[in-house]
């Protein structure tokens, strides 16, 4: 199959047929006019040969649709650049070995789910002893000292703890993203860290199901980790980034970072 990377289109049944499926609801009664409206809407979205394959009345004032159509658009994938977390992912053993060799002291990490967010699933998976998907959390790593402050922690408290324990990295988890509350909260934390004058002394890392590295960079963080992240991913990044900082600042480290 020869895919033209400058003109990538959806694949339904044959290359470049452009088939897409979508479903949505319109706040109108379900009738022939509503089905036509769904079709027109799909056409405006750039679909052709639109077929409204299913429509259903919800509570007499809404209509639900399943729609197929062929997308007239394509994308040039050769022009896409995605910022990625700059780290070679290592295993539990490798990370501990790396820290012992290049940093030669325990890395201190402070973590929390801040603001009003009460969902600790993400931060617990990364930090807590038990970890996630059969991988230990950073708490279990002999070369990490971790403080998981839990949920609904004010940004100020997280920062105060980071200063108190001289943290190398601050991990902040955000799960609730309704009306972009996480953006406000993450921005607020970055501003606080900046205002305290410790931005260059600490790695600022965000994580959560709706978090990307791109967002992290945009908000002035060092890294962002999305769904599927394992503790070793975060551990690898922190260890390598810290080693790099230490090397750049000439701080005493036993080994030489490659």
């Amino acid at each position: 199959m020869e895919v033209n990377m400058t003109r990538v289109r959806p694949y339904g049944d044959t290359l470049d047929d452009g088939y897409m499926q979508l479903s949505f609801t319109l706040p109108v009664q379900c009738n022939a006019e509503a089905r036509k409206a769904a079709e027109l809407l799909a056409e405006k979205m750039g679909l052709e040969d639109v077929k409204v394959v299913y429509s259903h009345n919800i509570a007499d004032i809404f209509s639900f649709f399943v729609v197929y159509g062929r997308c007239i658009h394509s994308v040039d994938m050769t022009a896409i650049e995605i910022p990625k977390v700059d780290a070679d992912f290592m295993s539990y053993q490798e990370i501990n070995g790396f820290i012992e060799k290049h940093i030669a002291r325990r890395i201190v990490v402070v973590a929390a789910c801040t603001g009003t967010d009460a969902h600790t699933v993400g931060i617990d998976a990364i930090i807590n002893m038990k970890g996630y998907r059969g991988e230990y959390g950073l708490e279990r790593y002999p070369w990490f000292t971790t403080y998981n402050l839990g949920s609904q922690v004010p940004n100020e408290d997280l920062l105060a703890k980071a200063i108190q324990v001289n943290a190398d990295a601050i991990l902040v988890s955000q799960v609730v993203t309704q009306r972009n509350i996480h953006i406000d909260n993450l921005t607020h934390l970055a501003e606080l860290v900046e205002a305290e004058g410790i931005r260059d002394k600490v790695l600022l890392i965000m994580g959560g199901p709706r978090i990307s590295h791109e967002l992290a960079i945009e908000l002035g963080y060092d890294a962002g980790f999305g769904p599927g992240t394992l503790p070793s991913h975060v551990g690898s990044f922190i260890a390598q980034a810290l080693a790099r900082t230490m090397r750049n600042s000439g701080e005493q480290a036993r080994g030489v970072y490659p």
Partner: peptide
């Protein structure tokens, strides 16, 4: 109301995060 008309028997209004 829409959910009840679809057949829901019980409606829970989730609280704003942090109210607890």
């Amino acid at each position: 109301k829409a959910a009840a008309k679809c057949g829901a028997d019980i409606i829970a209004v989730i609280r704003s995060t942090g109210q607890s």
